[in-house]
Write a protein that binds this DNA or RNA. Structure first.
Lengths: 136, 136
DNA sequence: CATATATATATGTAGAATGCACATAGAGTA
DNA sequence: TACTCTATGTGCATTCTACATATATATATG
């Protein structure tokens, strides 16, 4: 709903809505933390693994910037790995705070699933409430 | 993960994470459209109805600005209602494009639910893949 | 009548999230 | 040498959204 191409009413045809994915904010952070909880990793590899969560063709800039911010926030720690061929890698490790954050987010996600249920109940045509009378 | 109060590792205690709700982007737009699909309404009333979706204490500015943007995008239309007591109301009606947008969003939401299932499967300890060997 | 309150809509500003484009650099290989 | 793969980043613009504040009308209350 935020570009020129979307355009006017198109009578119910499949619209070319961009940026209309029902994806929560901060999705990337928990996905990274979940990956790091399994095993330590680095940006380039995390990018591939993130695609398992629907982050297809993840753009590198967003990922690397997010990782640096996460380190500032204390949910991950990093160190350079230079003991092998190829460019140096910044290896990341999840912290205790990171695990706590992940748990918190998972609980929040459960709550959100209930909200989605409510949405679908209304969407599929079973209103939760009748139209109230005009007040006063 | 974006404020000073979150702070450092806290060893798994319940953290005071702010803004860490698993809430999707653009949630407000479909909620408004869903409300308007049931019956025409206006900002002040929509604000109350939005609270049914977990938008507690919605701040008015966000809602009214969103409504105006939605009209620009062609998913709603509005007209002033002055034929009654009290301040004038801007009454909103959903358009065909709005209905199309809502349908699109709902389908997107279904896709996203699968992604969440994947997330929870990993979170609760059943990895989808083993750690691959170091390449090359 | 004056003032307060409820109703109703809106702007200004700032910060966070995010996408897109582009920049940098090491190591192997043709 | 040039090219490609691997790997990490920055700059810029847009969007989303929270918070504070402004405006106006009608009704209730003293």
């Amino acid at each position: 709903m935020n570009n020129d191409e979307k355009g006017q009413a198109n009578g119910g045809r499949e619209p070319g809505f961009r940026g209309v994915e029902a994806r929560p904010r901060n999705w990337l952070v928990p996905v990274i933390l979940l990956s790091l909880r399994e095993w330590n990793s680095y940006g380039y590899e995390l990018m591939e693994r993130a695609s398992n969560f629907g982050f297809e063709a993840m753009n590198p800039g967003t990922l690397y910037r997010t990782l640096r911010q996460m380190e500032k926030d204390g949910v991950v720690e990093s160190s350079w790995e230079t003991s092998r061929g190829g460019p140096a890698r910044r290896m990341y490790t999840i912290t205790d705070a990171g695990r706590a954050y992940l748990d918190f987010w998972a609980r929040s996600l459960e709550q959100y699933q209930q909200t989605m249920d409510t949405f679908f109940r209304l969407y599929t045509g079973r209103p939760l409430q009748d139209k109230p009378d005009e007040k006063k």
